[in-house]
Design a protein around this nucleic acid. Structure first.
Lengths: 129, 129
DNA sequence: CTTGACCTTCCCGTGACTGGAAGCCCCATC
DNA sequence: GATGGGGCTTCCAGTCACGGGAAGGTCAAG
């Protein structure tokens, strides 16, 4: 398979796949003409990466997870720890965003949104609340 | 006031304040020695920016909001639109993160987290669900 | 006069790509 | 055999909102 084929089959842009090779996540072989040649195993790894990235894992998390994936003697505790740390970061982000949403919703609701210049949103941002 | 003073009083790092000047959000005067000289009005703007950023507005949003803030003939509808667009982006992010949290929670709960290699998290990422 | 805190500019690095330029390769068609 | 178009290659630059750190000027206290 060439890069276009695995791009289609993995759903990842070719650019991203090259990037993943650059940073050492995958190591496809090369044809004599210099083209990358991907095997099923590479495609499998790319799908793994795509799923992990979709769950919000960082690239470094992905590197760790891939290594654990390939290590038959891993302990599931190690995997769980990575996932739990990530989950904690997500919880924090959600909480931050919900706080923003709360404030923003209040401000938007309080704003008349008409042709007049008076605006509670700007008053709040300006500290004149 | 020098940059250190406004940094303390606005809660923004000096680096950030210089950056805001670089990109044209503020325009403090200069002393003869080249030091930036901030007036109350600059500090006020910085506080505005700090609050807007804390609510997750992008820098470009901030530029728009600041311009509206200074424009006495603005329409509050314009401000509201910026805030509503931003709110929509936040809602999307929250939804994405909650979906991730859901999946991750299920996977973490399903994982024994012991010394054994068998791991539902990796099985899922590997597409062997 | 020296010390140390503060200020200046400038450049590089972050994360995870994305866009684009310049150029090679391969296949099909005329 | 020339040509055209799509796919592949590398490399460089840009994204966003700063942060780190170097090299050097400035100021107030002792």
């Amino acid at each position: 398979m060439n890069i276009g084929d695995v791009a289609t089959r993995s759903g990842l842009p070719a650019k991203t796949i090259r990037y993943y090779e650059d940073i050492g996540l995958i190591a496809p072989q090369r044809d004599l003409n210099g083209y990358r040649r991907f095997r099923e195993r590479d495609l499998h790894k790319l799908n793994f990466l795509g799923r992990a990235r979709a769950l919000g894992f960082t690239i470094e998390d992905c590197r760790t997870l891939l290594a654990l994936y390939e290590d038959q003697s891993r302990a599931s505790a190690d995997v769980k720890q990575v996932a739990r740390d990530h989950l904690a970061r997500i919880e924090t982000k959600i909480a931050d965003l919900i706080a923003m949403r709360q404030t923003l919703t209040e401000l938007v609701d309080a704003c008349a949104g008409d042709h007049r210049p008076d605006c509670p949103i700007l008053r709040d941002l300006g500290g004149e609340s």
